[in-house]
Design a protein around this nucleic acid. Structure first.
Ligand SMILES: [Zn+2]
Ligand SMILES: [Zn+2]
Ligand SMILES: [Zn+2]
Ligand SMILES: [Zn+2]
Lengths: 169, 169
DNA sequence: AGGGATATGTTATATTATAACATTACACAA
DNA sequence: TTGTGTAATGTTATAATATAACATATCCCT
């Protein structure tokens, strides 16, 4: 027997698993309308929350979006890589990196409970599809002209709409 | 001579620097009303955006909030530690951790551009103030009874209001 | 001064998330 | 079986976060 809530979680998880992209809660909600015509935001957030507490889904903090867990069994925290070009998300075992991070913050007496590690860049498929322009570190967002090229970290998240890759809603 | 925009950025930075907490954009906006009575959200977000692109402020992704940079000179990415008890933020040089993370994701051909590393836990001051109950890894949120104790990662961010520390708005 | 680019101001709205309360389902005792 | 308390789910409304779109001002260069 499955409670309605379990059904909802299963449906949400199925939707997340159909892609390796992260979906916003409201995108999930849209897709849920097929199976649950009268669904409202709290139901989605509750399902996501349950899935996350079971380690079956993760929130991608830098995208305000959610993704299915890709690990066989999600033991502790993992590293999420986010392709700036196609939006693909990959989950990597954090392993020793976790200890390294904890060690750094422990130098000021901080005790770690929960790690969030996300990396933006270019995925293997996109790297293969179009060669890096030069300089080696992966390519820029696209062929869009760059009148005043972004510097440092500004490359990433708060990117003006016009030069934002299409997969960002 | 300072343009109005530069003044705004300076004011925002001053506000962020008054605390070692992260402030939401709208909290910043409130405090800006003293100096800029007619300010609107876009001005705040523009100022924050400029500050961030110069590395003088950072967004704390897991808190949807902003904090002044604490580094002498913010070279690349850093590790932010967030105290679950008092909300204090500390910035740590990522150093070799950055390479470690890049190395992990590089195993699938991913090339890194921008790292986000945040750690939730308990800061030195809070650890000192009240002894860990047992188990060693830093203490729980407070003396609130725990009818069905949270497990795994669920300890952190999506914490129900009632048992959320006061510094979370 | 004119004209184009950039920065700033203003209004409105989009997007994300949760509070608050109503209702239902279920366990267990009376 | 019928009440009674508890937890899960549904529903409504609203809070909190962020950006679009366009108007106006400022600056730089000729
Ligand atoms: Zn996982
Ligand atoms: Zn890609
Ligand atoms: Zn910094
Ligand atoms: Zn603390």
């Amino acid at each position: 027997m499955t409670t309605p809530g379990e059904q909802m979680q299963a449906d949400v998880l199925a939707i997340l698993r159909r892609r390796n992209l992260a979906l916003s809660a409201y995108k999930v909600l849209e897709e849920l309308r097929d199976a649950h015509p009268k669904i409202a935001p709290p139901a989605v957030y509750r399902a996501l929350s349950s899935l996350m507490s079971k380690g079956q889904a993760h929130r991608v903090e830098t995208l305000k979006a959610y993704v299915a867990c890709q690990c066989k069994e999600h033991a502790r925290a993992s590293i999420l890589s986010i392709c700036e070009n196609c939006g693909a998300i990959e989950e990597h075992l954090a392993g020793e990196v976790l200890e390294a991070v904890s060690h750094v913050v422990a130098e000021t007496g901080f005790s770690s409970q929960h790690h969030v590690i996300e990396v933006h860049g270019i995925c293997a498929a996109c790297n293969a599809r179009m060669p890096a322009p030069e300089g080696g570190g992966g390519r820029r967002l696209s062929a869009i002209a760059d009148p005043m090229p972004p510097k440092l970290e500004a490359v990433c998240c708060p990117l003006p709409t016009a030069r934002r890759a299409a997969w960002r809603h």
